[in-house]
Design a protein around this nucleic acid. Structure first.
Lengths: 181, 181
DNA sequence: CCGGTGTGTGACATTTTGTCGCGATAAAAA
DNA sequence: TTTTTATCGCGACAAAATGTCACACACCGG
């Protein structure tokens, strides 16, 4: 086994333990020294003030949102390359994540190769295709809900009120994953 | 009429001329001196090296993508507040736009108040000053359906396909238009 | 004429949503 | 402290919306 001293440090934060184990091992095979945490509080304690070179963080976790961690890591060291990886991907959270210092934003499922590529990617590397198909109405609604939810700072009752939707219904919609395309 | 000299300059770039006229007038009513362009090349020529304080730019246009303009404007003056407003919103373009210097990313349909709110928002600011109440999800869906239906030249089957919705359902939605705000 | 496509409609199964209520939690007010 | 007020998560059931299949009709080009 090589010494970890000469490997780049990578902080992996996701509440899904199985997912973490798999991704961590895949990342280690690709030459990273991986630290794992399952929530923001533990992660903050884990890194202390020694910012890692790389970070992969999920958004939806018990306790603080991953966005909080993105902000802290970026303030600690603006050179840290942070990839947000979430199963509940939305434009609203993507915009927020990038503004807070994330270098890239990926939707699950994503394999280790994609994550590594995103970690190393520079702005403008990928020619973002502009047009294509319009979103499905389901997707549109999902994006819109996320946007309003963010404006309400996560308050579900308030969001439901503004959207003219029942809180129960909103809860049910939020529980589902966004549909592709 | 007040002189334009003391009003903040706003560059509006969108290939949809009708949309431009409406939004431009709405923005002027809110105290901006609006310059309009329908493609990136014209816009670049229009501003020269005098960067506007504000910009609202669409992504999908004939010629260069709006992303190109975002980059140029941001390089010209990093204090320019740029809102990307697109009918074909996607996570990929949102990430790219923010990294290139956009301050916010909105999906059509969006009303002038939303655009102004996005223009005024501080980068990474958590204090979300919420303006008027948002559209209901029903209304948003209605607007969106109308837009896609227009692009399909009234072809209901094609529209339903693009929206990932059953033709029967789309017909029923179209049949009952009396949806209040 | 035929095959492909689009439209309108009915009928029925499935899914989603509205609505009520409950217990638990947290913060603010009394 | 106790009481209010608001939030969240979730079960249950009826109402509404949607998916699905079917059929009839119109249009168009080979």
């Amino acid at each position: 086994m090589e010494s970890n001293r000469d490997l780049p440090n990578l902080l992996l934060v996701d509440d899904d333990e199985l997912f973490c184990r798999i991704l961590a091992s895949a990342l280690e095979k690709r030459g990273f020294s991986v630290l794992v945490s399952h929530n923001v509080a533990d992660a903050v304690e884990l890194v202390g003030d020694a910012a890692p070179e790389y970070a992969v963080v999920d958004l939806s976790m018990p306790g603080d949102s991953g966005l909080v961690l993105v902000e802290k890591l970026h303030k600690l060291d603006e050179h840290t390359r942070i990839v947000v990886l979430t199963g509940y991907a939305s434009i609203a959270t993507a915009v927020e994540a990038i503004k807070l210092g994330a270098t890239h934003y990926l939707a699950k499922p994503a394999d280790a190769d994609e994550v590594v590529a995103a970690l190393g990617r520079e702005t403008g590397d990928t020619a973002a295709e502009v047009s294509g198909q319009p979103m499905s109405t389901k997707r549109l609604e999902w994006e819109y809900i996320q946007k309003v939810l963010m404006e309400c700072e996560g308050n579900i009752s308030e969001t439901a009120r503004r959207l003219g939707m029942h809180r129960r219904t909103l809860q049910r919609k939020l529980a589902k994953r966004p549909t592709k395309s």
